[in-house]
Every structure is written in C-alpha cells, then in structure tokens.
Amino acid sequence: MADREIDEPTGTATTGHSWDGIRELDTPMPRWWLWTFYATIVFAVVYMILYPAIPMIDRATQGLLGWSSRGAVQSEIEGAIANQADYRQRVANAATMQDIINDQELFQFAVSAGKSAFSVNCVQCHGMGAAGGPGYPNLQDDDWLWGGSIDDIRQTIAHGIRSDDPETRVSEMPAFGRDGILDRDQIRNVSAYVMNIAKVPPKYGDVAAGEQVFTENCAACHGDTGQGMPEMGAPALNDPIWLRVTDQDQVVAQVTSPKHGVMPAWEGRLGDTTVKELATYVYSLSGGPSATIR
C-alpha cells in the first residue's frame, strides 16, 4: 500500500494508469452499494421462482404465483365489466326502450356500450361509421327498410332479417321477370316509372305505362306513391336513397330477379342487454325522434 500513488487534491489513491498525464482515481465503492447489488441478485432469484422467467422448449417456466400477462388483462377486463355492472343492470331492467331514452345518463352509457358492441359485431357489413354500402343499409340516414323507431331497430337487431330466428323479419319480393309475371317491356316501363318518382330522368321506357304496371304489381308493398312500407321491409322508392342500385339497368335487374339482404339474429348471441345497447346506439346515429321515417 505504501507505494500507491496518491492524488493530491482528493487524497485518493490512483489506479497507477496514466493517459497523457491524466490518472484514474481508484475510489473504493461504498460497502452498502455492494449489499444493494447482492439484494438485486436475491430479488432476481426470488422473481424467477415466483414469476414466469426461464424459456423452455414450448413455454417459459410458470412461476409459483401463476401470474401471466394474459391473465392480468383478463382480470382487468373483468374489473372493467364489474365497474359497468350497475349500468348494465339498469339497461337490463329497463322495461321499454323509452325508459332508456328518458334517462339521459343511461342513454349515454347505452350509446357508448352499443358503439363498442357495434365495432365488434356490425362493422363487417355496415361499416365502421355505419354508413353501409351497396346491399348493406346506411344506418346514419333517415330511410329505414323495417322502421326507424327504437323499438323497430331493437326488433331487427334481436331477431334479424330473413335469419333462422323464428321471429325474424321476413319478406320476399316476387321475381317478376324470372317467374314470368311481367314481360320485358312492362319491366322496362316500370323501371322508367321508378326512376321518375326518384326524380332521375329515365334512359328508356314509358313512364305512364310504367305507372300502370306499378299500381297493379308494386304498390301493394311499395305504396301508392312508392313511399315504401316498413312493415313489409319494402323500401321507399321515391327518395334518393337507394340500397342496392345505382342506375336504371340495375332497377330492371332487381325487378326481374330480386336480391334479398340477410341479417343474423343477435339476441341469442349477444343477449338482450347488449341488443338494447346496440339499438340505442343505432338509434342515436340517425338523430333520434326527429329523424325517424317521415
């Protein structure tokens, strides 16, 4: 020790190394620092015993506590569900949908809950913003195939359309062309009439003759003026909102050999409470009472 070089200002020994005259101090570590280091080793060993740690061939060691990140997420989800239990119960207890509408706070909860259920179950067809697409109705607008009151919406979601549910909504448009009910000219004329009541100039056909065909064959379901009939799921034809067609040729095709949309029944899959929430959300999209079918 006697030969150790001592740094004058600090009084500390140096390592003896010198780089261009700069020498490194050999300050001893504080002993508690060493203990802290040992403590971290002990911590690591205990941690490895208690928690998943060592990768094995197909999975890591499980740890004595049985903790897993998947399990942690699961318990967080359960906690979140438990936190909502009170509201969910209130939604479940609501005898009518009007009870939910009348309770501003419950309405907000139902809209939020319905939105997340919608994002999981409905966006595949109706789109993320519920704007639909060809063949899949836009839920944001005020045109409803099967009625836009909140009870109608709930019924549609719960039991579906042309689904295998016994209470499903079901209707079928006759295949006027394929089954030979109307001939080619009649179909062309009625398509011209349909274009006309939708305020789009027809490309071909006789509107006056078409009106005759319409009154005899179509008005029973679509209404005298083509205003539609939600009870039958018959769309209004006299507005600019068309579900499936974009031009007169497609009107002809639909009259000749109609396509029918199908929607699954959700009550069996999601339960009554979630269906109520979904109905509230869909109802809120179109703005509520002022925007139901006029």
Partner: peptide
C-alpha cells in the same frame, strides 16, 4: 367532424354532417 361518413344524404335530398 365525423370522418366516416363525411356526410349523409337524407330521404328529402338534404345533406347532413355529424
């Protein structure tokens, strides 16, 4: 402003934004 859809066409021809 709603991004999807940006606007909605209503049955009377008017346009609505959310």
């Amino acid at each position: 402003h709603d991004r999807n859809p940006v606007y909605v066409r209503l049955s009377d021809g008017s346009i609505r934004n959310g």
